[in-house]
Design a protein around this nucleic acid. Structure first.
Lengths: 220, 220
DNA sequence: TTTTGTGAACTAGTTCACAGCT
DNA sequence: AGCTGTGAACTAGTTCACAAAA
């Protein structure tokens, strides 16, 4: 999502002590399109001042509010394997307004242990209980693909509102629950595709090289 | 990329012993659009047989070839922290035609050690040497954001052709090098956004509820 | 008949360029 | 003057529906 990108940019500006910025300034600095920035922001309110630009602290506040980050979002990680543990200890989440409330697993040898930074591993059977008690809203699924569908169902039943799935499986979620997949293998395959340089076959009627035509944007 | 998704679907069909499938069959089973499947596939050749459908093994071979997976793709992971180690041991990569050729770090206490599944940690100073020697083509960047730009430069100099960046930083790569970002925080923020339910403000002239109009597709 | 491959219709997303505000 | 907010132009991506092939 682009609003997230803008928030990251605004964070950097704030670090640099810049307190006012124009859409064009943002676009130049971070290689974006100024009209798109303006449109994206204007869709949620009139945050800018014509002739001046955007106030960085104000813009940051608005962005955090739009992204629902003015209150701490609590996260449960289901699957306390290497990936789950690595994510539980990832410092970027904490600093960004997220809190890893717990790791969950069904492996009795893991239950009760803690990750390096102190996140406790709970029995996955206690997921619902803790989701309610701690008001956890987001679940990260880091179990093997075979277990993922069941885990997803469990998460939904526990009352989680959004799921981030790392398992290479196509999961289903009911309308009220937002599901997002982070399929690492697909990312690697995409890169492989571009390296391979396999290009779509040329349409028969296409001209080998089409000289691009300048176009007019005159408003009548 | 969708071709990756199709490959995953075809894998599942093969596991189920299905050896022929129509675009409509694929679409129904995996919740896709049949016309899109046909168009995507047809862009790379005529793999189907009219009136019959697609042969699963043949389609799989074609997809792997298009994705450049008929030869093993070797991967270097720069940054032997928790995330790097977790990715090095991720079994999904190996089974998918990728090989993790090594972890790289500048921490002397890590150099020479091995991950749980036996991936060696090398001095990052040896990146170029090993990239050439082992014909590594893809780099995964799992270092802190502050180190990411330098690491990216190093990867490019070493001759890597594609980079998968996990650091929350906007990196730059020259035209010949493909860069893809996997920003976990952005993913979480996107989920948070949907939970928050912040909706774009309604355009003034919009009608509160627009009854959708059925449309004709008659070709004249 | 069945199902692909594909032009055309449609929809969504991006960029331009300027009216209007400060 | 400078910059936002935004209609309109443009581009990309998706879906439809049918001719052509098996």
């Amino acid at each position: 999502m682009r609003l997230s990108v803008y928030l990251r940019c605004v964070d950097l500006l704030e670090t640099d002590g810049i307190c006012r910025v124009s859409s064009e300034g943002l676009a130049r600095r971070f290689d974006l399109n100024s009209a798109q920035i303006r449109k994206d922001l204007a869709a949620f309110g009139e945050f800018g001042v014509r002739g001046v630009g955007y106030q960085v602290p104000e813009l940051k506040r608005h962005l955090r509010s739009i992204l629902g980050l003015d209150e701490t979002r609590r996260v449960a990680i289901v699957g306390a394997g290497h990936l789950g543990q690595a994510l539980a200890d990832y410092r970027g989440f904490r600093s960004g307004g997220f809190e890893i409330s717990g790791l969950f697993d069904n492996d009795r040898s893991k239950i009760g242990t803690r990750s390096r930074t102190g996140v406790t591993v709970y029995d996955v059977a206690r997921l619902k209980e803790l989701v309610i008690q701690r008001e956890i809203q987001i679940g990260m699924i880091t179990v093997p693909a075979s277990a993922a569908p069941d885990v997803a169902r469990l998460c939904v039943e526990a009352g989680l509102r959004a799921l981030l799935n790392f398992a290479p499986a196509r999961l289903q979620a009911p309308p009220g629950v937002r599901l997002k997949n982070v399929d690492l293998k697909i990312n690697l395959e995409t890169l492989s595709f571009y390296i391979a340089g396999s290009s779509p076959r040329r349409r028969r009627e296409e001209w080998p090289q089409t000289p691009s035509q300048p176009r007019s944007h005159r408003r009548t």
